[in-house]
Amino acid sequence: MSLAAVFRTAGRELPQVSICQRVSSFRTGCHLLAAEKALLMKLRKETGYTFINCKRALEMFENDVTKAKNWLHEQAQKEGWSKANKLQGRKAKEGLIGLFVGDKAAVMVEVNCETDFVARNEKFQKLVKNAAFATLTHHGTKTRDHPGYVKSMLGADELTKLSVGEGTSLADEVALTIGSLGENMSVRRAVTVGVPAGWRIGSYVHGGLTSQTDMAMGRYGALVVFQGGKEGDQEALGRKLGQHVVGEAPLSLGNVDDLPCGDSETRLLPQNFLPDPSLTVAQFLRGQQAKVLDFVRFQCGETFSEGTE
């Protein structure tokens, strides 16, 4: 008697499972695994969090990507604030100057970290970009009805309160980046300028990095507000003036008739013009039919006298 017959005799019918059914079941399992892997890869790419944490989040919320993403962000934020509090006393003198020039407004920010290695990280550069555009947005809300020249300097306390998204402050963004990269960081200062019709904004960044953003970033930066200039050459003029300000570090504007006082000259207009030292800045501007009205220079990590920051 066959084994099947024995079980039938005992009143127990063997299930008739064919090879095709088993293969079909195996293939279905493979499709499920592939779908889950695709969700995991999607969540990992969109959030940047570890595979382990992404897998845990998907399991917790039964593969609901939106809920998993929100939970991961909340956990990272908590961890970031915890790390930020622990690292608060560590010196952060490295970092980047971020600079963006729009049509009639420009912003320059300094964001600090502990090492040059972290300054080259895309996540840190994203923080610099977010800080700059949060500042520029704030500038726009304050000067929307102001037709003239507007210049605004913001310190760390004011900057960290700015919004970078719905319900998220710049302080939250800093903490999140600290949690991700493990170094102390701070958004140190920012300047915005808005100009009326007929005025222009020149800029220059030195020590620049290859950035994944649409902003210029480096160790030094300058904004120069000017009028005039030969038609078609104004962008190049603005860059040359910014390059001079970065290289020669003037402290004040001075007057067009001021005489240079040697190597220790700290007024912009009497300084020898960096791209052409045979001319003073005032003489160069006269030849370009241009006039500098204001300038700002940032150097990453520089120290300040009391009351100048």
Rank of each mutant, 00 (worst) to 15 (best):
N184V: 07
W199V: 11
M215N: 01
V205K: 03
V195K: 03
I201A: 09
L162K: 02
G155E: 12
S180V: 04
E231Q: 14
R144G: 00
Q212D: 08
H138S: 15
A222L: 06
E231F: 01
K142C: 11
G229K: 11
K151M: 11
G194N: 07
V164A: 06
Q212R: 14
E173P: 00
R144N: 06
V193Q: 02
G202H: 04
H146Q: 15
V187Y: 01
M217R: 03
M215C: 14
V150W: 10
T213F: 07
D145E: 15
H138C: 10
V224S: 06
G148E: 11
W199E: 13
L136S: 06
L154A: 04
E231C: 03
M185C: 08
G167W: 02
M185H: 01
G202C: 09
G140P: 00
G198R: 03
T210L: 13
R189L: 06
P147F: 06
T135F: 06
L159V: 03
L136G: 03
R200E: 12
S169A: 09
P196N: 06
A190G: 05
V150L: 03
G182S: 11
G194S: 15
V150P: 00
G221N: 06
F133M: 15
T135H: 01
E231T: 13
A190P: 04
V225R: 03
A197H: 09
E166L: 12
V224E: 04
K142R: 15
P147E: 10
G229Q: 10
Y204D: 07
G179A: 10
T213D: 10
S211K: 08
W199M: 15
R189N: 02
L209Y: 08
R144H: 11
T213V: 08
T143E: 03
S186V: 14
L209T: 09
M185A: 05
R144F: 13
S203M: 11
L176S: 13
M215R: 00
V150K: 05
H206K: 10
L237E: 00
G179D: 08
F226P: 06
R219C: 04
Y204W: 13
A197F: 02
H139M: 14
A216Q: 14
G167I: 04
S203E: 12
H146T: 13
D214R: 14
N184F: 06
A132W: 02
D145M: 12
T168H: 05
T177I: 11
S211P: 02
G228D: 07
T160Q: 15
A132P: 07
